[in-house]
Design a binder for these strands. Structure first.
Length: 1052
RNA sequence: GGGCGCUUAGCUCAGUCGGUAGAGCACCGCCAUUACACGGCGGGUGUCGCAGGUUCGAGUCCUGCAGCGCUCACCA
């Protein structure tokens, strides 16, 4: 017989004595996890009954361990998962990790650098092997952290974005998009990191403020009739200028129309083009509110190969794009620049920075530098190498997300009422699909981000010049069009189900139809995309080379709701049978707002394109966890706090409860963190240092507060590799007093249960039932209300409300009032015993999604109670709390009369306690209440509760004359007397108390009188509101009169 | 610059339909009482960022301003 057996004999009933005096999480958590594992209760079976409830974990990347931001994210997902599991849903929470191409490769390269080694010292295979080792270590750490937090993921189904099933999905997706014309090779400007020589995604670019200059450069007109002046912050790019643009509305435009300029240094003749994009200077009619109008000259140098906006202008006007740089950022005549003059040769080979100085010097020396002004502006920097990103012309693979099949379906997925304005007509008229209008954001305002992103989206560069990731499955061969055309015959023998062929022109990257290839001129590329590697060798022997690049990490992340369920071929993996149909679309995606564009959008587009369904119906965007300085907790910054540290100091439930209570809809969470000294156990505030980027972080090495000679490594030091923990200098854990809230709460529940068990150990299941007391009715009504409020809060994804509801129910209602109130009666009232046991049982269930460990630990003891039957409270037995049914109080437990009457009881008790507190009456001292009929009736109805909680000895009718030592309290408009508070009355203290009370009430009364004297109020406010004010005023006036009478009796 | 949010008690934050503001922590007093000192009881004198407006009535709705944060854009 297991300890969880609800049939455990009464003789073995756990008693309060068996439970330690305080909840010790470390003693409980391991055993509880073992129980869950043994029962496999989080394993999802598609064939099992129940409505599907599925969540895909946002796969944490394997660069580092999880921090409290992840703990927050996962606590909320676990709350949802456990809640719906208990409500009877067929629940899947899919766990896994993300390979995070750039981030992980960078971390490993940094570590290698500490050993004096570079990536290129290894073969690609050997390097990938090293990254793999890192991944294995951190994947294990991350999964361990999730388990420590109590996450009820189906760990049997854990996936990794580069495992075989995910890789198959990535391969199929790429192949399909390629074949459908949604993946193409493009010659475009990308964010280029000239140090690491790879393209970067937009989100890998960090904007940093730098001090620069505006240089005003004169470009002479080719006919010698004068010059125009351009303003630029990057004069070195002028070597690649192919035009100067002017706004067509500029008054000077007409005179310059058709004229050419002679580009200084280079000697290139360039046109003046007219383009609306150019901002006119304020003096020429430009908008003075536009800051550009302040420093603009109205002439814009156009360098299509080194500036995105110039590229766009170039496209509009058919301008050449002349790339004047090598991949390392140096000026180069070998990457597209052919008209290098003798004068210009001097600049070839210079770095970007040096070239800038020399170009400025040249203009100055030649009298063409009109002006130079200091200017501070934001420039994109690589988050890897921290050098300015170069907009660089290169050949990359793109997903045509601007196609209606991708962008259009994403926009049409939005819930109609969350769409701002109307969708563009071209989008709205697109083909209908299942899931249209069903994607809903919580909070709703984030729908706008999603919409705006898609309306302004650009094609997505997916190739990365890295080694860690999904290698692009395209084999290419370059050559003259006619020569390549000769290969087409052989390629045609490849089955179209496994291979797809496309061709592009080298000069501009434009796609060329295969049928036109034979007749085309010049160098072309032939690209063959293969669904699997089996035909690769044949291609390679025919002179094709596989693309060395890998795919952007988000490409595989975008497939997460598909790949984890076995798409495209679930039958290939028997354990995945049925998953895709059962759990996709999933129920909700829980993530932070920064991810809306990077990930949410792409999952929606891909899931809809490949499967015709939404990946999830709801998107819940939660707050971000910041450190004590308001900085986002992040793996790369190293300011993250390991959840295991908090679990160590406070317990998992405490961490979870606190995090849930901080989950408000609008406010990011600021979490000041302390350090626990590993030498002494003392908690102290760390010494701070300023890291690169101006961030405030804990010093890598900290001193013990009591003995500064003893050192330790901070989490920041360890995370960034700045300091390595040793035996003498161990890693210090973090903690935070913010989690006391949750720890205290778990302990409160623990002790409330101990109390209940102690009082129910003698319970008699067969005793005659007595009617419910007011207190019992009230408790059940509060429970019923709490369950409703809980359900509503979860449905709205308002998690702090969930925490609030259970906190008030458990601490305020159950502990402070109910348990205190039943103390004199519970041992003899069998009905009350059932209410106590039933309420406690329901509370454990309600609390379980937030605090799974303490509730599961207490569960067997409470389940063993023999008498938990309460009419209207359905509490189906269950071996585990994790799989117990959600408590569903019947509507019959709603009892507004009991709530209202008990509210009066509480007000009465509060009023008496207040006087006791002010007069410092010992809790042991019993006093006498003298009151009128209505109050005595209330006391009687409360069945002893008032006497117990207010410490009353006797309750008697109001006497005709006030006893000498009695103290008066106004209550509900009449006077109560408390007698026996003290052996002797302190008349002076009493006068002070009454005067204060009168002043307080008079202030309230005058406010209400002012309202009622206002004719507008009486005439226009709802009659019920006016009537309420009148009643309140009458009551207050009566209170004042009573207090005045008492004051007079004291001779005041 | 665009968008979104925030500004309420010493601190961290709630505040739904507009009807005279709440919680936790901290702080003060009392309490070894038999579930819990990780506890109990009592204690709040807040210009609800500023200025206008709408309204009988504004923390709440509208406008403007200031400060802070996030995000997108920005190399003229």
């Amino acid at each position: 017989m297991t300890p969880t057996d609800p049939q455990r004999p009464a003789a073995e009933l756990p008693t309060a004595a068996e439970l330690p005096k305080a909840y010790v999480p470390a003693d409980a958590e391991g055993a509880v996890r073992a129980k869950w594992d043994a029962a496999r209760c989080f394993h999802a079976e598609p064939s099992a009954p129940g409505e599907a409830y599925a969540i895909f974990i946002p796969p944490p990347n394997v660069t580092a361990a999880l921090h409290l931001g992840h703990a927050f994210n996962n606590s909320l997902q676990d709350l949802l998962t456990r809640y719906h599991r208990m409500k009877g849903a067929n629940t899947l929470w899919m766990p896994g990790t993300d390979h995070a191409g750039i981030a992980t490769q960078t971390v490993v390269e940094k570590r290698l650098l500490l050993q004096g080694k570079k990536r290129t010292d290894f073969t690609r295979e050997a390097f990938v092997e090293k990254v793999q080792e890192w991944k294995d270590e951190y994947e294990a750490t991350i999964l361990g952290q999730l388990k420590s937090m109590g996450c009820s993921c189906d760990f049997d189904r854990t996936r990794f974005t580069m495992d075989e099933t995910c890789a198959t999905a990535v391969r199929t997706a790429f192949f399909t998009l390629f074949k459908d014309g949604l993946v193409y090779r493009g010659k475009r400007l990308v964010n280029w990191d000239p140090v690491t020589e790879t393209a970067l995604a937009d989100d890998e670019v960090e904007m940093e403020e730098v001090d620069g200059h505006f240089w005003y450069l004169r470009y002479p007109l080719a006919d010698g009739s004068g010059h125009v002046t351009v303003a630029t912050t990057r004069p070195e790019t002028m070597l690649g200028d192919t035009a100067v643009a002017i706004n067509p509305k500029d008054p000077r435009a007409a005179a310059l129309r058709g004229k050419k300029l002679r580009l200084p240094i280079v000697g290139r003749e360039i046109p003046i083009v007219e383009d609306d994009y150019v901002v006119m200077p304020a003096s020429m009619g430009g908008d003075p509110a536009d800051p550009k109008a302040q420093f603009a000259t109205g002439f814009l140098k156009v360098t299509p190969a080194h500036d995105q906006n110039d590229w766009d202008i170039g496209q509009r006007h058919g301008l050449a794009a002349i790339n004047v740089m090598a991949p390392n950022g140096a000026i180069s005549d070998r990457h597209g620049w052919t008209d290098v003059s003798d004068e210009a040769h001097a600049f070839v080979g210079l770095s970007r920075e040096e070239a800038r100085k020399r170009v400025v010097a040249w203009f100055k020396a030649n009298g063409l530098l009109e002006d130079a002004k200091p200017y501070r502006h934001a420039v994109g920097h690589s988050y890897r190498s921290h050098v300015p990103v170069e907009p660089y012309l290169s050949d990359q693979w793109y997903v045509r997300v601007t196609d209606d099949r991708l962008r259009g379906t994403a926009l049409r997925a939005m819930a109609k009422d969350q769409v701002e304005g109307a969708l563009p007509a071209a989008v709205a008229s697109g083909p209908a699909m299942s899931g249209d209008g069903e994607l809903r954001f919580f909070p709703a305002r984030y729908a706008k981000n999603f919409q705006m992103w898609h309306e302004n989206i650009r094609d997505w560069c997916i190739s990365r010049q890295l080694w860690w990731g999904h290698r692009i499955p395209v084999w290419s061969r370059r050559g003259e069009a006619s020569a390549l055309a000769a290969h087409l015959g052989a390629l045609a023998s490849l089955p179209s189900a496994r291979a797809s062929v496309r061709a592009s022109r080298v000069a501009d990257g434009a796609e060329v139809a295969l049928s036109a290839l034979a007749g085309a001129k010049g160098e072309h590329d032939l690209h063959v995309c293969l669904l699997d590697d089996s035909d690769g060798a044949a291609l390679e022997s025919a002179g094709f080379k596989r693309d060395p690049d890998v795919l952007d990490t988000w490409f595989s992340s975008a497939l997460w709701p598909l790949s984890t369920l076995g798409w495209p071929d679930p039958s290939k993996w028997p354990e995945m049978a049925g998953l895709l149909d059962r759990y996709n679309p999933s129920s909700v995606l829980c993530t932070a707002r920064e991810i809306i564009t990077l990930w949410v959008s792409r999952m929606v587009m891909f899931n809809r394109y490949f499967l015709g369904r939404l990946p999830f119906r709801h998107v819940f965007i939660h707050a971000m966890i910041q450190d004590g300085h308001g900085q986002k907790m992040s793996k790369s910054l190293g300011n993250g706090v390991d959840p295991r540290d908090i679990i160590h100091s406070h317990g998992s439930d405490a961490m979870r409860f606190t995090l849930v209570s901080m989950a408000t809809n609008t406010q990011d969470v600021r979490l000041p963190v302390d350090i626990v000294c590993p030498h002494t156990g003392d908690t102290f505030t760390p010494k701070w240092a300023t890291a690169s980027g101006g961030y405030t972080v804990a010093d890598a090495i900290q001193s013990s507060p009591k003995d500064p000679s003893r050192k330790m490594v901070s989490g920041f030091g360890a995370a960034t590799g700045v300091a390595t923990p040793t035996a003498d200098m161990p890693l210090a854990r973090n903690t935070s007093a913010r989690f006391d809230l949750g720890r205290n709460f778990a302990n409160k529940l623990w002790n409330a249960t101990r109390f209940a068990l102690a009082n129910l150990s003698q319970a008699r299941p067969d005793s005659t039932k007595e009617p419910l007391t007011l207190l019992d009715r009230w408790m059940l009504a509060r429970l019923e209300r709490a369950v409703r409020a809980y359900d509503e809060a979860v449905a709205d994804y308002e998690f702090h409300r969930v925490a609030e509801v259970v906190y008030d129910l458990v601490w305020r209602d159950f502990c402070d009032w109910y348990l205190e109130g039943i103390k004199p009666t519970v041992r003899s009232n069998a009905t009350q015993q059932a209410v106590l046991a039933g309420t406690l049982d329901a509370i454990l269930r309600l609390l379980h999604p937030i605090c799974p460990f303490v509730t599961e630990t207490l569960w067997p003891s409470v389940q063993a109670l023999p008498n938990r039957a309460v009419a209207g409270l359905s509490l189906a037995p269950s071996a585990l709390c994790a799989t117990a049914a959600w408590p569903a109080p019947a509507a019959s437990l709603r009892d507004d009369a009991a709530l209202a009457e008990f509210a009066r009881v509480q007000a009465l008790v509060d009023a008496i306690r207040k006087v006791r507190g002010e007069r410092q009456v010992s809790p042991k001292r019993r006093i006498a209440l003298l009151a009128g009929d209505s109050v005595r009736a209330l006391v009687t109805a409360a069945g002893g509760v008032v006497e117990t909680l207010a410490g009353l000895e006797t309750v008697s009718p109001s006497p005709a004359t006030r006893p000498a030592g009695a103290v008066a309290i106004p209550f509900e408009g009449s006077e109560l007397l408390l007698d026996g508070l003290a052996d002797a009355v302190d008349a002076s203290a009493e006068r002070t108390r009454l005067s204060k009370l009168i002043a307080e009430r008079e202030k309230q009364a005058s406010g209400m009188r002012a309202k009622l004297d206002n004719a507008g109020y009486v005439a226009k406010a709802p009659p019920a509101v006016v009537e309420e004010t009148r009643q309140k005023l009458a009551e207050i006036d009566a209170d004042i009169a009573a207090a005045r009478g008492a004051l007079a009796a004291l001779g005041g």
